[in-house]
Amino acid sequence: MPLSEERADTPGEPPATFAELRERLAGGSVRLPKRLKQVAAFALAHPDEIALGTVARIAEDAGVQPSALIRFGQALGFTGFTDLQAVFRERLRKQVTNYDERLLSLRTGNGDTSRTAVLLDGLCKSATHSIATLHDRIDVEQVDAAAALLARAETIYLVAQRRSFPITSYLSYALGKLGIRNVLIGSAVGTDSETVSFATQRDAALAISFTPYASATVAHARQLSEAGVPLVVITDSPFSPLCSDARIWFEVVEADFQGFRSLSASMALAMTIALGVADRRQSGETGTDPG
């Protein structure tokens, strides 16, 4: 590999917070060689492991040499890995705030304003901002391509866990009402891997996961991809572990209010794709798989 591909860009000031670090990596302002990209993807997918693990253990889990962690920190402007790890540990300390404490923060500092009015206003504004950002940034041609890919499928597999599961759950309902065969992955009896194994290249899948990425979703998406099943992904970062397995992927970042994130933009995109699938099916415009 040429020397130019082995080196990262000259770093500037190191990011002071995890949010700044994540934005710098996801925004493409830092160009990294292959191994450091691998570290970046692991760090964004497993921030708790970076915060709490040893260099040796993190390197093993990320599939790199320990020296790659040091070079990754230096590529971001840190003197080494320890300073980088401090940013991840500060993120973890801030996350200790539980939902009760978040709710308590809503009850203070609002004077005589109705707490319900503050909640409604804040949540509506964050949802509106999320949808407006999606509307302005989404590549409509990519949405068309995703709808076309899924429309060709005999069966659409819907894959999500935790916070993302309400999206695929509703999509399963909507697609069923539209007469489109689908399988919702999320069995309480723990047979999801077996169900996913039934998918073939004649099918397609939609997987959804956001930071911190659900390990089961990542595993099922990889299983589908390795079986040659075309995969569409909705996630929140180009460094998401789902992107490498996706035929088409979308980045959706939801705004938050007092630490709570809605699914407004993600649901809007998912439903747009689903209705696009139905429209193509009804008009007979399923086309052929371009590969």
Rank of each mutant, 00 (worst) to 15 (best):
Asp139Ile: 03
Ala127Phe: 02
Glu90Ala: 13
Gln38Leu: 13
Thr133Lys: 09
Asp121Trp: 04
Ile58Val: 11
Glu60Trp: 04
Leu36Ile: 09
Phe72Trp: 04
Arg57Thr: 11
Glu23Ser: 08
Thr82Lys: 13
Arg115Val: 14
Ser126Phe: 02
Gln65Phe: 09
Arg93Val: 03
Arg107Phe: 06
Thr133Met: 08
Ser114Tyr: 09
Glu49Phe: 02
Arg107Asp: 13
Gly122Ile: 08
Thr97Lys: 14
Arg107Leu: 14
Glu60Thr: 13
Arg102Asp: 02
Arg24Phe: 01
Asp139Asn: 14
Phe88Ile: 11
Ala59Leu: 01
Ala41His: 01
His46Lys: 15
Asp48Cys: 09
Phe42Asp: 08
Gly28Gln: 06
Asp112Ala: 12
Ala75Ile: 07
Val64Glu: 10
Gln65Met: 11
Arg137Ala: 15
Gln85Asn: 05
Asp112Lys: 12
Gly80Trp: 00
Asp61Trp: 08
Arg22Asn: 08
Asp121Lys: 11
His46Met: 10
Ser29Cys: 06
Ser130Ala: 02
Asn110Met: 11
Ala40Gln: 08
Thr97Leu: 15
Thr54Phe: 00
Thr113Pro: 00
Leu44Asn: 06
Arg102Lys: 07
Lys94Gly: 12
Ala127Thr: 00
Ile50Asp: 00
Arg35Ser: 10
Leu76Trp: 03
Thr79Tyr: 07
Arg24Gly: 08
Ile131Leu: 13
Ser67Phe: 12
Arg24Val: 08
Ala117Trp: 03
Gly73Met: 07
Ile138Lys: 09
Phe42Arg: 02
Val87Thr: 12
Ala62Glu: 04
Leu134Glu: 01
Leu84Glu: 00
Val87Arg: 04
Ser126Met: 07
Asp139Ala: 08
Ser105Ile: 01
Gly53Phe: 05
Ala62Met: 00
Ile70Gln: 12
Leu44Asp: 03
